[in-house]
């Protein structure tokens, strides 16, 4: 059992959770993930590590309640425990001084982009961050991002805060303004990552995305997380999760992530029903 040290909501349905995991805290690098299992009968789900405190022996996860497991996790408070956590898994982000690096986070993807933005800054890059959200209430880590950025932009789909539009429009604007960009990291929903790849492709800007296929073990055994990169099969858990955005087959990833839509719905409904019953008593 692994103890939750602190837990608070950053925005509606997005929670920051700090968990005791000393070995992982000591070893993890930007871009790596953990597999967690909330309860005894829980599934193993991959979550990218948002940060760690090696001295305290804790790691931080930022979780959006989507399916049953993440919703269940987001009900946890400080002092509660989760069944299992294993990591750090996946290859760390490739970090070097590229020159000017743009870190793009979409929605809860910002939480995953954050540690890599920190590492890029530490490596001496001129760091630009673009963080997109649907609206002002859903903007997360604004202060943290701004602290590691030489230029920090917020975009909202509805224009309620920052730049009115998508992260890709902001990126295009920077390119059009003649900004020399050497490296782009984009983490967020698949359509966003794909769109970023299309913006940078004509300019040959090195672009990296962090993929989130369905996983079971997360250690290179099951092959469920296979993605098509440059027409080859790659395993996101050991070869990734970061890949060259210009070589990723996003359509295949989108399709494969739909594999359990029906079951996910069934599980979420059963869980919602159970929660309602608990509320009534």
């Amino acid at each position: 059992m692994y103890k939750i040290v602190s837990a608070q909501f950053l925005a509606e349905n997005i929670k920051k959770i700090e968990i005791e995991a000393p070995r992982i805290a000591k070893k993890r690098k930007a871009g790596q993930f953990v597999m967690i299992r909330v309860g005894q009968r829980g599934e193993r789900i991959p979550l990218t590590i948002a940060g760690s405190d090696p001295e305290k022996g804790t790691i931080t996860l930022i979780v959006q309640g989507m399916g049953k497991s993440t919703k269940e996790l987001n009900l946890k408070e400080a002092g509660d425990t989760i069944n299992d956590i294993v990591g750090p898994l996946g290859a760390p982000s490739h970090i070097e001084n590229f020159g000017t690096a743009v870190s793009i986070g979409g929605g809860v993807g910002t939480a995953i982009a954050y540690p890599t933005a920190v590492a890029l800054k530490e490596a001496g890059n001129y760091v630009i961050t673009i963080n997109g959200a649907r609206s002002k209430d859903l903007v997360i880590l604004e202060e943290e991002m701004s602290a590691v950025s030489d230029e920090a932009y917020i975009t909202t789909d509805d224009g309620s805060y920052g730049f009115h539009g998508f992260v890709t429009q902001k990126l295009q604007q920077l390119i059009d303004a003649g900004k020399k960009i050497d490296y782009v990291l984009a983490i967020g929903p698949i359509p966003m990552m794909k769109a970023v790849a299309e913006v940078t492709r004509p300019y040959n800007i090195q672009t990296v995305v962090s993929l989130n296929p369905i996983m079971v073990d997360g250690t290179g055994m099951c092959g469920g997380c296979r993605v098509t990169v440059n027409n080859e099969i790659k395993f996101a858990c050991v070869d990734g999760p970061e890949f060259d955005a210009h070589l990723v087959d996003f359509k295949n990833l989108t399709d494969r992530n739909k594999l359990y839509l029906h079951e996910e719905k069934q599980s979420a409904e059963a869980y919602a029903h159970q929660c309602n019953l608990q509320k009534q008593f």
Partner: peptide
Amino acid sequence: VYSANEFLTRVNLMKSYQFPENDTP
């Protein structure tokens, strides 16, 4: 299309033959 490893891990380790009592489908 599955690998045998994935199919068997889901069923044996994660006990998905008892879905949705167990979370893994």
